[in-house]
Amino acid sequence: MTWLITGASRGLGRHLALQLAQRGHRVLACARDADRLQTLAAESGGAVVPVVIDLADATQIGPRLGEALAREAHISGVVNNAGFGAYKPFLEHSEAESIQLVQVNLTAAIQVCHAVLPRLLAQRSGHIVNVGSDLARRPLANMAVYAAAKHGLAGFSHSLLREVKQAGVKVSLVNSGIVDTDFGGAAEGSRDAHWSLRPAQLAQLIIQLIEQPGNVVVDELSVHPLGQDF
């Protein structure tokens, strides 16, 4: 089984790629950091195939994914995991930064789905997992553009599911709370486990989600650390 994962060079994407590789899957790992992808490929024993792509550049996504997908006989699904955010007032975002936030957190996921979905429909099977945020379901000051993108991803995911499920394709949205990664400029491992999820734990939950029986789809999953303040 072959999975495509975006944002695979670090954090949740890296843990997910390694766990899928350990379970015998092949992983097309997408990120812009070629060196980190090569290290990941070596750690996986060759099960991970690097796909160097900068999701902030909308012009790269279709052509580079097309090349990578053309080499695969079957695609099991895709995990749109890439994302970034900045905690600061809206007016402190430049226009360019706001555009980039929407591109990486929302538009890139739509572009990835556009590239992969024809294969899944032709197979009449496959699973799209979009990693969102609990900010899609609750307000938080100083995260307006990021929250808007994640609200958009939630709407896209639920609408797409209703469009493609009769063809055997599943779409799931995973809304997580605080995760102990380098999101927002932090360092992975710097956050207390009581109020932040371990990325390896969240990766395990996503694997459980995609391993549900064929007649079951989890359309939305919300998961938080027990100590997170809502």
Score class of each variant (00 low, 15 high):
S125F: 00
G185T: 00
D35L: 14
A200W: 00
A56N: 14
R198I: 04
P199E: 07
F84T: 10
Q22M: 00
T2V: 15
R119V: 02
G177R: 06
A56D: 14
A141T: 07
A136D: 07
G214Q: 15
A203K: 12
G83F: 14
A167P: 11
V104N: 07
L226Y: 06
V179L: 13
L55C: 12
W195H: 15
A31M: 06
G83D: 14
P118V: 05
R64I: 03
S98R: 14
G227L: 02
E92N: 12
G126L: 00
N105I: 03
V218W: 14
H114D: 13
V217I: 04
Q22C: 00
K88M: 13
S190T: 14
N175R: 13
S222H: 02
C30P: 10
L121I: 06
C113M: 09
A8Q: 06
I210V: 10
V79A: 05
L153T: 01
Q111H: 08
V48F: 08
A147T: 00
L221D: 09
K165G: 05
S9N: 10
L209D: 11
A115I: 07
T107K: 13
D57I: 12
S94P: 01
A31P: 07
R14G: 03
E43A: 08
R119G: 02
S176E: 15
D57K: 14
N81T: 07
A29L: 04
P118S: 10
L20P: 00
A149E: 01
G227M: 03
V169W: 00
S190P: 05
V102Y: 12
